[in-house]
Design a binder for these strands. Structure first.
Lengths: 200, 200
DNA sequence: TGACAAACATACCATCTAGTCGGTATTATT
DNA sequence: AATAATACCGACTAGATGGTATGTTTGTCA
């Protein structure tokens, strides 16, 4: 394993509850959250609705568990990088590569995350948002460090992160793992743009 | 009016059908497309459901009309810029400013655009996507011109545009017109990042 | 072998929703 | 004044949906 690879891979669960969450995720992403019924989920999981409710309290809970599971895993990948790398520029590059690798590995999860977070209850939504803020703060911190050491030049690191993550996040709308460019090639183009811009 | 301002302002309709579309848009964005019932829309428009169906054939049609009206207006703003400016770098800058001004002026429209396009029928969705491609092509063309003239350095103008527009588009998730930074200030930071990157 | 809990299935309910249809008031036209 | 089109209202329906309550089977362990 080289220092550059991100090593991000999706967990492999196998118990019934995890399987239900996985098929629910797939259905939510293809059909949408509301157009997917608990009946649909049950069938796709090889259960009846009654059986489904043995494992999960409500449709809300399914949505929440999917959000929570994703953001927790995403955060844990980023935190690993944060500890490993010290140099701010190198750290930012590796954080970005990891972020794009997460988009690659967790495409459905992130799609749901951006499309259906608004359907969480106020309370749960706050909980998830707070963890998403932690995710962003890791990037902000890296950029602040770079700015303090004089390697980055930017008016506001908060805005810079919104800009950078926005560009990456939006990939979930067009990125296809089987497409022309691999995620690593895309990452290189992105990082080039972020670091040096478009102008020669 | 200076050459730099974008002059993008939202149209002001006033007939009943337009009013219905406006309240529907507002409800779709705050509550979501499916959780908003035709009953809700009728009430918000000061009608009964029967009255609502006098103006609109179906809920699908409401969704389509909102998408179409937005993308057509957005396209027309961009095309104006395309004609006005010749220099590639200046053109790209003005296109970007216009894009952000559109996000500012059409925040709800663009939110629905990204959240609910998947709920259009296959046919209508293709129609809308095709116009969205035209929108992107305007940017691609500007970057290609700049690359041919040797002012831009980028591996793929398509990817560059996905990157650039992605960063802008994602603003719809966090931008608030009443927030700390005006859209012009944000535009300046964004354009700085896009043109010259983060590194000193 | 009997008891008991885990892992489901079946049948059901109350509620909500998009859409329809016949009717009516109002305004414009001839 | 008669006709007709416009702009609605009120009541209704058929289907779908989240969730529940009550079984039934299967495995485990004393």
């Amino acid at each position: 394993m080289t220092t550059d690879s991100t090593n991000v891979t999706r967990r492999q669960g196998s118990d019934t509850k995890t399987e239900i969450l996985d098929v629910a995720l797939s259905l939510f992403v293809t059909k949408g959250y509301h157009p997917t019924s608990m009946q649909d989920i049950a069938e796709a999981a090889g259960l009846t609705k009654g059986g489904l409710y043995y494992y999960l309290k409500s449709k809300d809970e399914v949505l929440y568990l999917l959000h929570d599971r994703f953001i927790m895993e995403g955060l844990s990948w980023l935190r690993k990088v944060e500890e490993e790398v010290n140099d701010p520029e190198k750290k930012l590059v590796k954080l970005l590569k990891t972020h794009l690798a997460i988009i690659d590995q967790y495409k459905d999860d992130i799609t749901l995350f951006f499309e259906a977070m608004k359907y969480l209850s106020q309370e749960k939504r706050q909980e998830v948002k707070s963890k998403r803020d932690d995710y962003e703060k890791i990037f902000i911190k890296a950029i602040e460090e770079g700015r303090n050491q004089g390697v980055f030049s930017i008016a506001s690191s908060e805005i810079a992160v919104l800009y950078i993550l926005g560009a990456g996040n939006f990939m979930y709308t067009w990125y296809k793992p089987e497409g022309k460019k691999t995620i690593e090639e895309l990452a290189d183009i992105f990082i080039g743009m972020i670091m040096n811009g478009l102008v020669k």
